[in-house]
Amino acid sequence: MKVIIAGGGTGGHLFPGIALAESIIKRYQDARIVFVGTQKGLEAKVIPRIGYELRFISIKGFIGKALGDKAKSLWSLAKSMSESKKIIDSFSPDIVFGVGGYASLPLVLMASFKKVPSIILEQNTVPGLANKILGKVASAIAITYPETVEHFPREKVYLTGTPIRKRILEGDREKAKELFNLEEGRITVLVFGGSLGARRINKAMTDALSYLLPLKNSIQIIHQTGEADYNWVLAEYRNLSFKTTVIPFIYDMPEAYSWADLIICRAGASTVAEITALGKASILVPYPYAAYNHQEMNARRLLSRGACELILDREINGEILAKKINRILNNPEIRREMEMVSRAFGKSNAGEKIIEIAESLLRRKQ
């Protein structure tokens, strides 16, 4: 099987694509997979490190750009359509997957023109511009949330969940204990705000420490800060002598997840998919500038069933965050209920479901 996985830009789009690739390789060991993205997207750094073939197109973003930049974006789309045609002609894929982001747009459009079956993945409640367009031409649409069906032609839509990397489910607790200097018997709180960190979360968490002093001897904290905030966050923890591991970036996230009893983080699609597949209790702080406010919508869906607590970015401070933490950690039954509902949301076999849809499309074509 020859597969193109197009899209990326951010981890929320890229990592489901990587997870899907893992599922394809597991099922078709001789599969050849090519990722297509841009030189400025996260894929340019990540894909070469994990060994997949990567090709670039010239597409640029459109949403939120000034008028002059939008004109350049339209020109880059025309150029990227030509580049996409060359990629498809030279590679002859059996199927094309669009995992979101503007880099998926020209590849899936060209696949439609060339009569190559295509599937787009929509990880958020409300689709972005690229997927809104591609929903009209894609052969099938794999969604994470039932509400998303109203944005697409219903006959093409499949509720699959978001693919997650198998490694996420296989965290090594012994390795984690050494990596993060963890102690048995303590409740572990994991805090992160994406690869660059999140200053609002960092500030709220450090301000919360004075309200969490009664828990100091019973909890331990793993906190990913981002490079910019690392030094001052570390100093705040040391001032109050909390047991913590402060780190600019967590490379071994499966290990961090394996010990986490409570997670405090943003509400991107991939993150939500991972913490629900693992059945973790969480306090979600949606990134307020996400396109179409999709992070808040992701979080509110979990909140409506009791799978998480929610604090809006504009409202978060140390006192509010500490109240949420205390409520969850001081009431084991609340945490257990959140974990149970979270796990009910999670779908660890989304990649396999999407491959089955692809196989159905290929059988129809034959």
Rank of each mutant, 00 (worst) to 15 (best):
D89H: 07
A111D: 00
P106K: 07
Q123G: 11
Y102K: 13
G128K: 01
D94Y: 06
N124V: 06
P117M: 13
S118E: 02
L77F: 02
P93H: 08
E122S: 07
I87W: 01
A78M: 08
E122N: 05
K79F: 10
V116F: 02
S76L: 09
Y102T: 11
P106F: 03
S76I: 14
S76F: 04
S112N: 10
S80I: 08
A130V: 12
S84L: 00
S104H: 03
S104F: 06
A130W: 03
K85I: 15
L107Y: 02
G100Y: 11
D94I: 14
K86E: 09
K132S: 15
V99S: 00
Q123M: 12
K115R: 15
T125H: 07
K85F: 10
M81S: 09
S80A: 12
S80Y: 01
S80E: 06
G98L: 05
K85N: 11
P106A: 13
V96C: 10
V116Q: 10
V99L: 03
K86H: 08
W75K: 09
K132Q: 13
M81C: 11
V99D: 00
S92R: 13
I95R: 02
T125I: 15
N124M: 05
P93K: 06
A103H: 06
Y102I: 13
G100N: 12
S104M: 07
N124C: 05
K79S: 14
N131M: 08
G128P: 10
K115A: 12
F97V: 15
S82W: 09
E83A: 00
T125V: 15
L129Q: 06
K85L: 14
S76D: 06
K85R: 14
T125W: 07
L109F: 15
P127Q: 03
N124D: 02
F113L: 15
M81K: 05
S80Q: 02
P117E: 02
S118K: 01
A103F: 07
K114H: 07
K86S: 12
I88P: 10
L105P: 10
V126S: 04
F91G: 13
K115C: 14
N124H: 01
V108L: 04
K79T: 15
K114L: 13
I120H: 06
P93E: 04
G101V: 06
G98V: 02
L74V: 11
M110C: 04
I95Q: 07
E122F: 02
S80F: 05
Q123F: 04
F91T: 15
V126E: 06
G100E: 15
I95C: 05
S80L: 09
K85P: 08
V99H: 00
G100H: 08
L129D: 00
S104N: 03
K115Y: 08
K114T: 07
K115T: 12
S112P: 05
L105N: 07
I87K: 04
A111V: 07
G101P: 09
G98N: 03
S118N: 04
L121R: 02
V126K: 08
V126C: 02
S118M: 08
P93Y: 04
F113N: 12
K132P: 08
A111W: 00
I119R: 00
K79L: 14
L77I: 06
K86P: 01
L105H: 02
F113W: 14
I119G: 04
